[in-house]
Write a protein that binds this DNA or RNA. Structure first.
Lengths: 155, 155
DNA sequence: GCAATATGGTTTTATGATGCAACTAAAGGA
DNA sequence: TCCTTTAGTTGCATCATAAAACCATATTGC
């Protein structure tokens, strides 16, 4: 089998994330879901993607626990797709992608929207990485350590 | 043409990011580059990916201004791949992916490494989104606004 | 209740992307 | 010089994606 190499068993958390949401459409489906989109047809018309692919992506996202199917909500008998906590937890990833584009895109004038603080209407600050004690960290000030072995009892 | 739908002209900054780094391998190549990997062979052996695909990805990343080819560095006459500022700017994206995995992965015990503050050796905090005035923001406290039209002079 | 239409998909088929293996060409080393 | 390593490219089989056609229910108009 050639199989489009899965990262499922990989020990790197980045690879593991990509396993779930690292394809072309998943993050855009999640983006729409964060905007409140729930219905198949609305995903399809807003993203302009083929229905079979949307179908496959929704199924995959449900399998990964990012979306869940809800039996109904507005009376009609169709099922809906709503974000789980895990799905809502992708928000920082989307913000990071957005900010990277805003900072480095070759044609930033083509970017239509900016993310703002709802209360003040001002752009949000760049995501910051901080140490436990609150110190602002640069990438060079971080490093990777092996994960500590879990305790016997709590495992 | 069927063409694997490009997001290049899309106005959404998230889609634009995905256009450059939204495929299976690019972010992992960047991850290795952030660890200091520069040589073709080292990318290939560390990632275990096919050489033709690595070749295509490196070319794409260079085309997108994320990597640059440097003529040499350690004496040997082969060329190397080094991150540009744009490439180094992906760091928050990788951190966000990592933290999402750490928080929501179904098998967190399989994750081998944790990102720590180099000085103290303690895990870094979750990425925080803050308003201009420093207030911590939840997703619900943000919204999208149309990008303001650029000034005539400064354009 | 019944036909028409909208919704939410699946199937079919063509093409592009991926992955492995084999091949090439230049560099380095013995 | 010959052999090995490095850094790719090429060929081919397989997989994923995309567009369009098709289909099963639901809902709506009458």
């Amino acid at each position: 089998m050639v199989k489009r190499t899965s990262f499922a068993g990989d020990a790197c958390p980045i690879a593991r994330s990509l396993e779930a949401i690292g394809d072309w459409w998943s993050l855009l489906v999640i983006r729409e879901a964060l905007f409140g989109v729930r219905r198949f047809g609305e995903f399809q018309s807003r993203l302009g993607m083929a229905k079979n692919i949307l179908s496959a992506r929704l199924r995959s996202l449900v399998d990964h626990g990012i979306l869940a199917t809800a039996p109904a909500s507005d009376g009609s008998a169709y099922s809906e797709y709503v974000l789980t906590a895990k799905g809502r937890g992708t928000f920082p990833i989307l913000v990071a992608l957005r900010q990277w584009s805003e900072e480095f895109d070759d044609h930033p004038e083509e970017i239509a929207t900016i993310l703002v603080d709802r209360e003040k209407g001002r752009p949000v600050k760049k995501l910051e990485m901080r140490a436990e004690d609150g110190r602002l960290l640069t990438p060079a000030e971080t490093t990777l350590k092996p994960r500590p072995a879990p305790r016997r009892r709590s495992a």
